[in-house]
Design a protein around this nucleic acid. Structure first.
Lengths: 364, 364
DNA sequence: CTGTTAGCGCTTTCAC
DNA sequence: GTGAAAGCGCTAACAG
């Protein structure tokens, strides 16, 4: 039915070993023999069986890329950039196949996909986006990651904090420590970025600042909120922080709803800071519907600087995360094309992009 | 080093076959034996080797999803929806792994990825987005698809026209015909949607309508342009069509540039129709920079109805393609969870979404 | 219900 | 430079 190495060997009048050597080009083979083999390969339209090769050679051309949702540009950009690096050279048989897995941010789904990838003996795994903390699966994910790393799978975290050194260092943790070290991390400076953003608002003269964010148990949520809070605290506004913080799910709809809620809590709000750009869009829609002008009546700011932010009206003030660069770097790291940063952890800078959606409050 | 079936069998005191049967659960095994095996599996943290399994059972848990670029929401949404269906049931070992491949729309890259997937003996392949026509690789892609289908890989086209019946039906096309039939197609009604959109503008009273589109050799470009032209022709405006059509690359930047060019060609333009929403955003930016109001001075329309369209100011008139539904359906088709439409081809409806960015021209 | 026996298609020593 | 043979780890008849 399907053509095998043996078929090619037969047609070329050589042994299977020789065909293999020609195909892998890692061994001296006579020029004429090589030609004969290649002709047979073409005539028969032979394509190697990746599974057989993987089994025999104990290698794999799969790399997993775990994302919350590819449809979300934040992850789409990361995945796209990573994929480009991973597939690089696939014309020459060099690259690997990127398996993009949508986890919806659930540690349970992450665990499932990691197991699936482990089954395929994936060459590497990239986990993008913040982690969920405190679920029963959370530790399991960390353990699985350590396992994978120990088995030779390259693990790269992109946009999530490093693995905890060895929380449960118990019975069998002689290895665990080294394994955690084998995991490379590209952490985003969420805290610093958020801090600078809120400072920007404070500098403009805002004092009643609402904050709309995502689920409380995500590291991204926590870090950004931390940065926001610390800026407020330094401005002597620590008290308002809690009252004017609303949690949602990072969607436009939740940004819309939360903003309405914020307006109920404090009708004299002069600024709304969103934990991401998508929420900010929802906030703008809500504000506009209430007849409030941006930024004259209320300033709005986002986070991430996704492509659409520049096209919002007015253009959205936000914090830029170099997602493309980060994804590409994660791809290179997982492919071993770039050496890991010292300590295995690098922090990706977050840059304030002050645009038209923020301005001094009316009374100022 | 890594734990194998044999290790588990040894520890459980049974044969490898029994372990396999327990794991696959497709064969009767005594309760106590099963328990003993499961305990050994857990103790050893055993995870099957997917390659060995694939080789022995001649099955694969990979499904390829080819897209132009995951970072583009159009493809991100399709891929995300498809992936959800493909991975469905992976908790119970049912689902498969979706391999998302960025082809950048190049037939050459498509061919490479298809070969890579063929290597892995992928269970199925979904190709999304329009096809490029007339390259030397174009036929090769069609041939490869037929090959894959013949070898048992499910092939689904989503957003591109069906494969030509059998252009090169020559030497070995006895099979080719059936194979093409084995390919399921979910075509988008690009032509009809584009037609209705331009009719909408015509009905509003516009007569000087510019058109900004993508590369000429893409099926999507051609179909949408066809629809636009036929509407103009019916309105007696066939002549203006060519002069007021500018090709770009579907990006925001090209939409911006092309709109400026359009304005040079006809400063009295009253409407700009873009071949997708991203171009439309660029058009809006260019118009606004020229001091023209939307829609008072110039109406703007897009295509696809991507999430950001509703947040554009003013909200963008566009043509809605049910991308999520289409992607999910493609996923179900490739998994054999849904039976193919009669004839193997289904057309996905495109719906006009008339919003605030289009209005009657000023002179009307 | 369980064990034995063959491979699946390829890579890789080890000889020649 | 090339061939023969021994697996890689698993599943699938085929016996019992």
């Amino acid at each position: 039915m399907t053509v095998t190495l043996a078929d090619v060997a037969a047609r070329a009048g050589v042994s299977a070993a020789t065909v293999s050597r020609v195909l892998n080009g890692n061994y001296p083979v006579a020029g004429t023999t090589r030609e004969r083999v290649m002709r047979a390969v073409n005539d028969l339209e032979y394509v190697v069986n990746g599974h057989a090769r993987a089994l025999a050679a104990a290698t794999s051309d799969l790399v997993g890329v775990l994302v919350n949702d590819v449809a979300d540009p934040f992850f789409g950009i990361l995945a796209s950039a990573a994929q480009t690096e991973i597939g690089r050279g696939s014309e020459h048989g060099g690259g690997k196949l990127a398996v993009v897995c949508n986890t919806g941010g659930s540690p349970e789904a992450e665990l499932n996909y990691l197991t699936l990838l482990q089954r395929q003996r994936a060459a590497g795994v990239i986990l993008t986006g913040g982690a969920v903390e405190g679920t029963e699966h959370t530790h399991a994910v960390a353990d699985k990651l350590a396992r994978l790393a120990a088995d030779g799978t390259k693990v790269v975290l992109c946009g999530r904090p490093p693995l905890p050194p060895d929380e449960f260092s118990g019975e069998e943790s002689a290895l665990e420590n080294d394994d955690a070290a084998a995991v490379t991390t590209l952490a985003f400076d969420n805290r610093g970025g958020a801090r600078r953003l809120t400072e920007h608002l404070l500098t403009l003269g805002h004092r009643r600042i609402g904050y709309v964010t995502g689920p409380a148990n995500r590291t991204t949520t926590r870090d950004r909120l931390d940065g926001h809070r610390s800026a407020l605290a330094d401005g002597g506004l620590a008290v308002t922080a809690d009252r004017l913080t609303v949690h949602g799910d990072y969607s436009r709809a939740s940004g819309y709803d939360a903003t309405l809620e914020l307006l109920r809590r404090d009708p004299d709000l002069t600024a709304v800071v969103a934990a991401n750009d998508t929420i900010a869009l929802g906030a703008c829609a809500a504000l506009r519907e209430r007849g409030m002008r941006i930024p004259q009546d209320v300033s709005v700011a986002g986070f991430d600087d996704l492509p659409f932010s520049i096209d919002a009206t007015p253009a959205l003030t936000t914090v830029r995360l170099p997602l493309h660069e980060a994804g590409a770097r994660a791809g290179r790291l997982v492919m071993g094309l770039e050496s890991p940063p010292p300590g295995g952890v690098a922090t990706v800078r977050a840059e304030l992009m002050a645009r038209a959606s923020t301005a001094p409050p009316a009374f100022a």
